[in-house]
């Protein structure tokens, strides 16, 4: 029963962390794309800028770095298993 509770609350907590970090990396990437676009097209129109930036962010979402954010779930789970083995190994 306490295992179920650990898994449920752990999943909730890690999901909060995952969503926050995912938003953060997307936001910094979007900001950088906007700045790059502004530097390249000083007098460009807003619609083209938005489309270009969104395309860049979508590409980033498909990339390896963004997918590796799943480590936020994997690393704690691995650490827990390692902890169980180390603590209880004879």
């Amino acid at each position: 029963m306490s295992l179920v509770r650990l898994v449920v609350f752990g999943a909730i907590g890690l999901t909060v962390v995952y969503l926050a970090v995912a938003w953060f990396v997307r936001s910094t990437r979007r900001e950088r794309l906007e700045k790059q676009w502004d530097a390249a097209n000083p007098a460009g129109d807003a619609e083209a800028r938005r489309a270009e930036v969104e395309k860049g962010v979508d590409e980033y979402r498909g990339g390896l770095v963004y997918r590796s954010l799943l480590l936020i779930y994997i690393v704690p789970a691995v650490l827990v298993v390692a902890n169980i083995v180390v603590t209880n190994w004879n």
């Binding site: 306490s2 650990l6 902890n83 209880n88």
Partner: peptide, 15 residues
Amino acid sequence: TGWIWPPYFKFDSSD
């Protein structure tokens, strides 16, 4: 401590 706080995951008290 089993699965509860604090997270030491200790099951081997007898050992």
